[in-house]
Write a protein that binds this DNA or RNA. Sequence first.
RNA 1: GGCGCGAUGGCGGAUCGGCUACGCAGCGGAUUGCAAAUCCGUUUAGCCGGGUUCGACUCCCGGUCGCGCCUCCA
Length: 482
Amino acid sequence: MTIVLHNTLTRKAEPLQPLREGHIGMYVCGPTVYDDCHIGHLMGPAIFDAVARWFTARGLRVRFVNNITDIDDKIINRSRETGEPWQAITERIIAQYNGWLKMLHVATITDQPRCTQYVAQMVRYVEELVAKGRAYVAADGVYYEVTRQENYGKLSGRRLDEMEAGARIERDAHLHHPADFALWKLAKPGEPSWPSPWGDGRPGWHIECSVMSSELLGGAFDIHGGGDDLKFPHHENEIAQAEAHGDAYASCWMHNGLVQYEGVKVGKSDPRMKDAAFRRQFMADHLIGTYGAPTIRFLLLSGHYRRPIDFGPAAIAAAKTALTRLLKQLGQRCEAPAAVADAAALARLLEPTLPPQADKARAAFCTALDDDINTGAAIAQLFTLASEANKAPEAQRGAILDVCCGLGRVIGLFQPGDLAALSAGSAAGAGDERLGQVMALVLELRQKARANRDFATSDLIRDRLKAAGITVKDGKDGATWE
RNA sequence: GGCGCGAUGGCGGAUCGGCUACGCAGCGGAUUGCAAAUCCGUUUAGCCGGGUUCGACUCCCGGUCGCGCCUCCA
């Protein structure tokens, strides 16, 4: 077994070689908590949850750190605009964020450090950078000096002289170089602040990840993940700080593709975002409320993590249809409690003898995930397994579906309650008990009509209900509606 | 201007030097009183021009187009 991962730093696929035998330290940049969660915030955790789950199934012990930026200019500004205390904003959004992660079955995060909990360590870290002559104190804070670094820009593949030529970097009088960035920002009156040798203030954005990752995972760790948009400047600057500090930092960098709409990235300053209805399409509450959390997880995993994902309504609806079909076929076995699969659990799934085609699909599932966590190709094998189950003799069917369900669960699909979560969005009012009783009566009367071969009455009932937005389905165990 | 990524069937989206990806939609069939649902089967590919090769969607070179980053972003 060898897991191969694409490393952004080397731009090559490399075999995963844990720094510490049997263990993986993984750090994934989390959100700045100043506003309601959108799908971009959830993408990283969901994707890297699948990564962590696969590592676990392959016998590795994963420490998965996902930080929270809970102090930042945006938070301060929001508080000023709304009057809500900044701590109240961050607490509220963190609770919301964790709620969504739970619904998406993100279960592998082991640490969720907050920036404000590590300010003392950050101050110490910055002091060391200043002492080493890699940072300098200016009028409004402490800055990292990029020109003192040999290979600044190696992650994103850019050079300082080229960047200087770029028209979009504005010269700031007190910076030694336009690419220098803040390690510590001195507070203006009324702003939240922490003490430091340079005066009260708050940490810069990039320093928190360098500090928290090394605090929790050590100065050298296995994997650093995040959205593709963080490659520069955020991750580049993390590397810069860590190297100046004397740390090896992350061996492998993984970047997930970003949210798109009709082929174009949906970003913070996208002109389309000015339209409230457009913006709403990407909010977590809208997506999860409309399509169900399992659909969103499924969609996120149905391609390759490095590719962007288009969140057009048609694509999401297709994902929902496909997932619903699988879940229905798998049935009750998805409702059993599911733990994150370890090596023993995966071994149990690989053990049963299956018909050749199903066996091939099962093997292909693992191969796909070993190959840079190709969840899309892996999911395709789940469909193949489901299809093979239908073709197989009755006696083998259950065994194939058990394997299919089990494998899906390895990447966090097919969890208890998923099918219900999918229908919850569409069947408005289904939870109404009185409506349920009325419907039971209506269907009973219709059944009587059908028994008498009075199809005119039977169809009248069905058509009228259809017009009212209720679909009647005759199954072999009686009719159902939704 | 610099750096990087991509171009696959009606749509989304993988793999692979010769063998069905897969899903959605469509079509045909089974089932059904008729539908729905379900199941089975199935049509439609690989930007353009060169090259390597017995053979390329797959490798190499060139072009075209699209996208991302170079500023806040997950």
